[in-house]
């Protein structure tokens, strides 16, 4: 398989998950597309460095996480700026699947940066071992964090969904 063919396969397989990770991180579909582009650009540029120590999935998620963490800090539009009234409007919208999905993305984007990525990977059902390896922390530390983030996210979602 040529590099281009391998890349195309990887993109088809992992782009949907990475797009959701980026969407949860930024809370914005437009910024998520930029990040997806940046992440896969980095995948393409670093494919020669892949040695098979981790699965392609873990490797690509690690690149996406690093890209997200460094990319958004430079942006003027930060997800923290999403105002409460935007969340309230989302919650007030007719209760349908789309508004719940958008509310969830927006709630995730209000968490601290690393928490956003960790919870997105948990929601995407990546194994804890992989998430710990991607974030560069121990599995025990990760479990403690996940417990806290799950509670924080559920509380936030419920507080807006109740309005």
């Amino acid at each position: 398989m040529t590099q281009q063919e391998t890349f195309t396969c990887l993109y088809r397989q992992y782009a949907p998950g990475i797009r959701k990770l980026c969407r949860g991180y930024t809370g914005s579909a437009t910024q998520a597309e930029d990040l997806l582009q940046e992440s896969f650009l980095a995948v393409w540029n670093n494919m020669h460095l892949y040695r098979g120590d981790a699965s392609w999935g873990t490797w690509i998620y690690r690149i996406a996480v690093n890209t997200c963490l460094l990319y958004l800090r430079k942006e003027k539009t930060r997800p923290e700026k999403i105002a409460d009234d935007v969340l309230l409007n989302l919650a007030e919208e007719e209760h349908n699947q789309d508004s719940e999905v958008q509310l969830l993305y927006t709630c995730i984007s209000r968490l601290p940066e690393t928490d956003r990525l960790i919870i997105s990977m948990v929601l995407e059902e990546l194994p804890y071992e992989d998430i710990a390896s991607i974030a560069g922390i121990t599995e025990n530390n990760l479990r403690v964090k996940i417990h806290r983030i799950k509670k924080q996210l559920t509380d936030m979602f419920n507080s807006y969904a109740r309005v």
Binding site: Y11, Q37, E100, V101, L104
Partner: peptide, 16 residues
């Protein structure tokens, strides 16, 4: 809810 938000099976065109 997160899993319901799965984008269309085609992830769109390859990045430039």
């Amino acid at each position: 809810i997160w899993q319901q938000s799965t984008p269309a099976p085609q992830p769109g065109p390859l990045p430039d």
